[in-house]
Design a protein around this nucleic acid. Sequence first.
DNA 1: AATCCGTGGGG
DNA 2: TCCCCAAGGAT
Length: 350
Amino acid sequence: MCDGKGAIGKSLLKWYDANARVMPWRVSPQDRALGVRPDPYRIWLSEVMLQQTTVAAVRDYFRRFTARWPDVEALAGAEVGAVMAEWAGLGYYARARNLLKCARVVAHEMGGRFPQTAADLQKLPGIGPYTAGAIAAIAYDEPVAVVDGNVERVVSRLFAVQTPLPAAKPELTDLTAQITPTTRPGDFAQAMMDLGATICTPRNPACAICPLIADCAAQSQGIAADLPRKLAKKPKPTRLGFAYVALNAAGDVLLERRPDKGLLGGTLGFPGSEWSEVPAPAPPLQSDWREAEAEVRHTFTHFHLILRVFVTRAEGADFTPRGDFAPGDLPTLMRKVWDAAQSADWPQPE
DNA sequence: AATCCGTGGGG
DNA sequence: TCCCCAAGGAT
């Protein structure tokens, strides 16, 4: 490691000490001075929630989870339906299923203590290279490279890496390791991410106020905003489908839980057809179905979806009691279906 | 290794 | 409106 690279950590930590963002899972500088350590449970929970998800979106979810399940043993004792309902709206629902799996492994097989190295953390469900590194660095001071999308951007600019992502990932990880200090590696990782989120942004980076401007190759070459290079993305097709909202006379709701695998796996929702270019109607029961005026439009990671929504009054054995149903327990797509159903011209019960 | 997985905000 | 993208992981 050359002196220039060591200087990056020093400059960055100085900036971080003056500019660290306040977040519910971070230990405040005052508490840190009193010797308070980050809680591995809260670091783990926050890092899983933050996977591909903005800080703003995570905040309230984190508060609700930690209020309801203050430690890993409490979470391990939760029912999967309760966890899915609490996660509803946050997206990427495999994270919620793996979160509970991981909590149960840690609580039941590890005495409630998380592994203390990145290598061992990564063996747990839902913990990959990034999350393992983040927990190890922040909670256990392991000087490991922590590489998320922010760090990829910051490092590709610092060293003017021209290789497009994702092929550049190993090179960026290696470069990150070279500038990661052995002291305060967790603060360094969080500082890199804060820098990427607030100054070294994807578009219009604020190089003029960047603490690393003197170390940045891309800035000196005038190409900071052009990095990192990325491969072109494929276009998103549009799929169609039908969704069915049935209530009985008491106002109970016909719901179904989706299988664990695939889109919206393990979440609660309304029955419906397949989603495809030419879906076949698939009402869950025979009744006087009325179509809502409003269609539901929703965009997933890799396709657009347009749903036609039908409503009816009917009787059946497997309705969810009205008092047990809350739209907030549904993923966003199904909340949209519910909202569209409210504006429909409902048939009267027979 | 390429694909599959949500959602909301910003430009 | 549309595209980008955000503290990625599993398969």
